[in-house]
Nucleic acid binder design. Structure first.
Lengths: 242, 242
DNA sequence: GTCTATACACAGATAGAC
DNA sequence: GTCTATCTGTGTATAGAC
């Protein structure tokens, strides 16, 4: 799938998703009109990401946020009970979307080799489309409450587990070699994360998501694919390095 | 080289290094006696790393630090002019050591394949021995002044460049395949960084630095090594996966 | 060189008018 | 629902005694 296609699907999906998700933290929001919440909460989230990703969530003052959102301090505080809750709400929001989309797409594929490819692609596309959130989520995990930190770690390990299982399944069917799949999955995760953690670097070097995705897949396959399958790929010219 | 050997060499090196390096920021320190500076500055740095890595440098208050170091606020401030300067001094300190050691070891090797191996090994060993500093340096880069941020980025790209050049050299001599070496180097860096960024995870899974190093090298070689060299390795049983 | 005490700025949060 | 004005706590930093 091309990134542009993904983007279209994502925007539809997000809209639908927001309608359901809005009410998850509804009790924490004092404002009654749904239309106001929908409009302003998104602005608040976006502004939080912009400011925090520049100087960190702790360093962002509520006055900074108030200025950026163009709402007074008083008005701001009717959309969340405290700064800490704002953080929790924002983390939670992104996590739900991510999980939901990642699962949906991987389950479309049948065989392990395709699942792996799709997993890498979708994760990269998702983190490209929501780069500010992904970066934020990574950098601010420390500032969460203990309970929320546990959730964040679970979510992190969950993504890894998906890849681990794909590799395991592939070993059984003979497409993938016998390896330490847990370790491999962790390293795949690290390579995926580099894309949103060092976004500035890749932008500067004019590397597109699609290029990066292809490159990652070729690295993983060089290491994991069993020799016969690798040979097939080579003949078909599918190594995607040029 | 084993990690234990590396540790021994490092501690000697560090001592020698500290003597020279102490005087780099000497003008910023109001305390006159060198012995006091040597003793307390290290305690201050260590404590800063402990607290900051738990909750972030911004969130660490000077009262927190004062408590941990067991020095009063007044005494603390005679070792650095401001909180911001403390950050700069600490970042600078670690960077100097890192650069100096990394270069020293890689230059010992002659051929690209060994350089690559040594580069990966030493970087991992170094980041293992100084994990708190590496983590800190990564997470707090945003809080640096613009000038210091530039320096941090340069330092980051410098390490990458080392690997890029090794790969290029290897391509010429025929041990490595034709690839996008800049991209590969970036991904190698990402895999190296995962070791100190997710230290808790690898500790929990009982993965040692040596194991991780071997695994990374085998991944990189699977992707980069030209077929003849790869075959040689396989025969000699050097893939290090068991 | 280290301490205690304090200055001063600014943070998060809320009350109450509109 | 949004604003302005204000409370209260806590942050960085320093002055001056020992």
């Amino acid at each position: 799938m091309k990134y542009s296609e993904f983007l279209k699907i994502l925007s539809d999906y997000k809209e639908e998703f927001n309608k359901e998700n809005l009410f998850e933290n509804r009790d924490k929001i004092r404002v009654k009109k749904d239309s106001s919440v929908a409009k302003n909460l998104e602005r608040i989230f976006d502004a939080t990401l912009v400011i925090s990703n520049k100087k960190g969530f702790q360093a962002m003052t509520m006055r900074d946020l108030s200025r950026e959102v163009e709402l007074s301090m008083g008005a701001l505080y009717s959309y969340f009970p405290s700064k800490e809750d704002l953080l929790t709400m924002l983390q939670h929001h992104g996590r739900s979307i991510t999980k939901s989309i990642l699962e949906k797409y991987i389950n479309l594929e049948k065989n392990p080799a395709d699942k792996l490819k799709t997993g890498v692609n979708i994760h990269l596309y998702l983190s490209e489309a929501m780069q500010p959130w992904f970066y934020f989520s990574y950098m601010e995990a420390r500032n969460l409450s203990e309970q929320e930190q546990t959730r964040a770690i679970e979510s992190e390990l969950y993504t890894e587990k998906i890849f681990e299982e794909i590799l395991q399944e592939g070993e059984k069917t003979g497409v993938f070699l016998v390896r330490n799949h847990q370790l491999t999955a962790g390293i795949i995760k690290a390579m995926l994360q580099d894309w949103y953690l060092k976004r500035w670097k890749y932008a500067k070097r004019n590397i597109s998501v699609e290029q990066y995705a292809k490159y990652l897949i070729s690295i993983i396959e060089a290491f994991c694919l069993s020799p016969e399958d690798a040979k097939m790929k080579k003949i078909r010219g599918e190594n995607g390095l040029h």
